[in-house]
Design a protein around this nucleic acid. Sequence first.
DNA 1: TTAGGGTTAG
Length: 618
Amino acid sequence: MGTLPTIIPNSRARFNNSQEFDVLPRVESCKSVREMKQIHAFMIKAKANRAPLSFRLLCAKITSVLQHVDLVSSKEIIFSYACFLVKLCGQNYVFNFNSIIQSLASCKNSFNATMGMYREMLLEGFFPDTYTIPHVLKACSESESLREGQQIHAYSIKTSLASNVFVKNTLMRLYAVCGIIKSVEKLFDEGPDRDLVSWTTLIQGYAKMDYSSAIDAFFRMNWIADEMTLVVVLSACSKLRDLNSGKKIHAYMDHHKIGVNLDVFLGNALVDMYLKCGQIDFARQVFDEMPTKNVVSWNSMISGLAQQGQFKKALDMFRMMQNMGLKPDSVTVVGVLNSCANLGMLELGKWMHSYINKSYIKADGYVGNALVDMYAKCGSIDQALEVFQAMKRRDVYSYTAMIVGLAMHGEARRALDIFSQMLKMGIKPDLVTFVGVLSACSHAGLVEEGRRHFEDMSRLYDLEPKTEHYGCMVDLLGRAGLISEAQEFINKMPILPDAFIWGSLLAACKIHAKVELGESAMEKLVEMEPSRDGAYILMSNIYSSANRWRDALKWRKEMKKRNIKKTPGCSSIEIDGMVHEFRKGEKSHPRSKELYKLLQVLTHQLRNYGLDQNFVWY
DNA sequence: TTAGGGTTAG
C-alpha cells in the first residue's frame, strides 16, 4: 500500500461552497482509484457530493484512470466504481450518466467503455435523452462502429429523439466517417432545422470522396461559414488542386473578416491549399502573416514544398523551424527525409535517422517507409534493407520502396525476392510495385519472368497496366534484342502509347542498331514532344553508330533550327550538409576551386574504370 | 450537460 495523499489538513474542517474548489485540483491530481475513493469519501462527508461540478470532475478523473489502466481486472473495478458513483451522486441520474458517458466518449479508444456505460444506463432503467445519444454516437464515429451506431439510430427513430438537431448532426457524422454519403444526404434533407454544423458535416462527408460536391455544397450554403467549415472546404480544394475555388474562399474570408490570425487551423488549411495548388508565394505570405504557428503549420510548409519539388526550400524551412526551437514530429521527419532522398543528401538523412531514434519517433509506417526510400535513393541500399528488415510492420509502401530501390541499384534478384516475400505475407501489390518489379526484370534481362508479372497484374491483382508498365515491357523486350516483338507489343497496346514508350523503343534501337525502326519511333516522338532534347541526341547517335554521319548531322542541325539545347549533364555533391550542383560547362560555383580538385580526382578514378564520358565534369 | 476542423509515402 503506497502513501495516501493528504487531501486536506483537517478532515473535520467544515466544507462550504467556496471551499469546494479546493477539492477540484486534488481530484485532478489523484492517480488511482484508491485516491479517488478517498477524495470521494471526503466529499460525501463534506456533503459536497451533490454538487454537479465536482461530480463532473470526478467523472473526468475516472475516465482518465480508465484510459491509463492496462489490466482488464483493474479496469472492471474502476468501471463498477463509476456505476456506483452515478447512482450515489445526486438524484438526477440521467444527467449523471450523461456526464460520465460524455467523459468516456471524449477519450481515445474508449468505445467499449462508453458503450458499457450506455448499456448500464439502459439496464438500470434510465432513458437516454438528446444529450446521451450524441455522446454515444461520438464514440461510435470515432471507432467507425457502424453497426452499433445504426442501432442507436434505430433507437433514436423509435423514441423520436432523431428529430433533435444534435442527434441528427452526430448521426450524419457517423455516416460521414463510415463513408455512407447517401445516409448523410438523407439525414441532411430530412429536417428543416439544419444548422451550420449540419452543413459542415455534409461538406465533410463529401470531402472524404467527392471533393467537387464538397465545394459545391459550400457555395450553396445559406449560413455564414465559420473557421471549422472553412477548414473542411479548403482541405477539399487542396485535394482537388482547385486554386480557383480556393481563391474564392480566401476572398470570402476577407469579405466576412475571418482572418487567419484568429485560428491556426484555418491558417494551416489555407497554406496547404496554396501549396497543393503550386502557389508557393501565396502560401508563404499566409504563413508569414500567421501570428501563431504550430508544428502542423511548419509541417504543411515543409511537406508542401517537397511535394512541389522545392526540396531545398523545404529544408530551409526545416532549418528555420529548428532555429525557432520547435520540436519536429513524425510528419516533419517524413517531409525532411523525402527532401533528402530527392537531393541525395545522405548526411542530413542519417542525422534525421539518429534524431528519430533519440526522440522515440517510431520508425514504422510513414517514417520507416520514408527512411527506406531515403537510403535507397541516396545510394545506401544496405542501410535501406537494414531499416526495412527492422520494421515491425510493413505495408505495400514499405515493400514497394524496397523493391523500387533495389531495382534502381540493379539488384534485380533481391528485388524479386522481396516481391515474393510480400506476396507470401498476403500484401497486395499496387501499380507502383509493378513498376519496380518490371524494371527489375528489365535490368536483369528476365524476359519470361517480366512477361509473367505483367500478365499477373490484371489476371491476379485486378490492376490495369498504365503507360509506365507498357514502357517497362517495351524496355524489357527492347534491351533483350526482341525489337520486333517490342514493336508488336506497342501496336497491340489498348492505350495510346506516349513519349515514354516511343523513347524506350528508340533507346532499344540505339543498343541494337536498328536504324529504320528508330526512324519511325523518332517520327512519333517529334510529334509528341518536339522540344525534348533526348530523342534528337539518341537518333543522331543511332545514325553515327551506323556510320551515317550526314543523317546524324541532320538531326543535330534540326535541334539547332528548333532552338533545342542539350540539357547539360548535372551532378551534385553534399559537403558540410550543403548540396552543390554542377552542370556541364559551369565554372562559377563559389567553392569551385576546392570542388574542382575533388571532382578531378573522381573523374580520374572513373576514367580508370573506363566509365562513360558523361561522368566528366568541367 | 450535447454536435463539425489542419499536415505525412513508394
